[in-house]
Design a protein around this nucleic acid. Structure first.
Lengths: 250, 250
DNA sequence: CTCCCCAATAATGTATACAGTAGGTATCCA
DNA sequence: TGGATACCTACTGTATACATTATTGGGGAG
């Protein structure tokens, strides 16, 4: 009720979309559960029209699924869906790295990436890494991936990568957090940093195939790590958006 | 006015979406042009609410672009966007082929693909190929790609490939039509058929890397061919034709 | 003559009212 | 007592009315 007149700068549709996404990701709405428009109207504090717009957008985003008889439900994902989504994004980012390398990148455009890596360097060498440093790392890592994607200068590819990252567990931050549940987390961060450095080097030297190969390997390693994390159920609570994983039938 | 009560089985939203997509693809609405909701309401014969829903869906589909000040415009694509979109889809289909090979496919699941190839065989060997045979080929080729995608059994990947194929020029039918404008069209069809046969073989023998590599090469070849076609100034004839072609939804 | 500002108009974003349908519950009959 | 049917409720899909914002055109000032 305090939020009713908060942030008048954003449209009602966006506000509804954010509110609903929050509810889904926080687990307030369980997978398979039907979304109640009326309830959404109350929580978002807007009328049905923008709520319905938000529902359509969230469906296209992949968080919701249309029910044939009408309405929407929260989409449920299998563990394999999650692993596939990560490999998918890795493949696309590999293509982005190739494009960047083949098309040439000016030293000035490469500067932010290198700066990003340097900032990360100081963080990953701490052992054990502090909570603040870790969240700083997560943000910087996401920034690195975004910058790399941009370097492809291919709007269709960038768009597709954004879509592939929409699912929380498929986003860069998502799987960094997932891997952090593993005992070898510290070493994983160092390896990731190496990968990133190689990619930047390959792009700088215009070696498209090498840039792509290392990004794909990077993703495949992440998939292997996450598969391990998923198998170790005790660490599952550290996974982002665990609410979206389909629970076994009761 | 005859369409007002036609097809009561589909929702008004879907009807509006189809009508608008038709208008865009047929060129009745030019790229960059702002969409008039009022006009859309008239042509679709429905009220503003389903029209706006359709607009949001078409934006997510990639055919429209939101205008910051409000409303939507028809999205404009550069030639490079078109080429990138094709390579993008090829990359995704390569991953699909890899998944299919690595995860194993039963002989029964592979049957429809082989049948598809056999049906195509008879068509591509005709020289010159008749108009009817060509459109039959286009349909069968699209079917082959759809079946191959399905074989990955990865819902996230399938979804992403569908999205990548939403743009008419990036769809299998789209670039077959584009390449058909080249003088070596006949030979291109034969090469494509070879590629497809190799992919099926690789999947059957569970050679993931080979299956992926050949699909990517297939796409890169198509990109090269289309770049030639665009450079030869045949694109003035090509683009309108491309706009008319879309892969069947199913 | 040109540039800027204000006002009128049109179109978007939002809210609400209406209609049709699916699902649930209660009652009645076997 | 169990099952089927009919009614009722609640929710979705659609239409329309309202408000707010952008755009355009004209008029006035420099």
């Amino acid at each position: 009720m305090a939020e009713r007149d908060a942030d008048r700068s954003v449209s009602q549709t966006v506000r509804a979309q954010l509110a609903l996404r929050d509810q889904i990701l926080s687990g307030a709405l369980r997978p398979g559960e039907r979304i109640s428009e009326l309830q959404a109207v109350e929580t978002a504090g807007v009328s049905r029209t923008p709520v319905r717009m938000a529902l359509v957008r969230l469906e296209e985003e992949g968080l919701l699924e249309a029910i044939p008889s009408g309405g929407f439900m929260v989409k449920a994902f299998s563990e394999r869906d999650i692993l596939d989504s990560i490999e998918l994004r890795g493949t696309l980012e590999g293509l982005a790295a190739r494009f960047a390398a083949e098309r040439g990148v000016s030293a000035r455009d490469l500067e932010p990436l290198k700066e990003c890596l340097n900032e990360i360097d100081g963080l990953v060498r701490q052992s054990p890494i502090s909570v603040d440093a870790f969240s700083a790392y997560v943000a910087l890592n996401a920034r690195f991936h975004a910058l790399l994607t941009e370097l492809s200068r291919s709007p269709p590819l960038i768009r597709q990568i954004d879509r592939a990252s929409a699912l929380p567990f498929a986003s860069p931050s998502g799987f960094v957090m997932a891997q952090s549940a593993l005992p070898e987390a510290q070493q994983i961060l160092l390896i990731a940093q190496d990968h990133h450095r190689i990619v930047v080097d390959a792009i700088e030297n215009r070696e498209g195939s090498r840039a792509e190969a290392i990004m794909r390997e990077h993703a495949r390693l992440a998939v292997r790590n996450l598969r391990l994390a998923l198998r170790n159920r005790t660490h599952l609570d550290l996974l982002p958006a665990l609410a979206l994983i389909r629970t076994p039938e009761v």
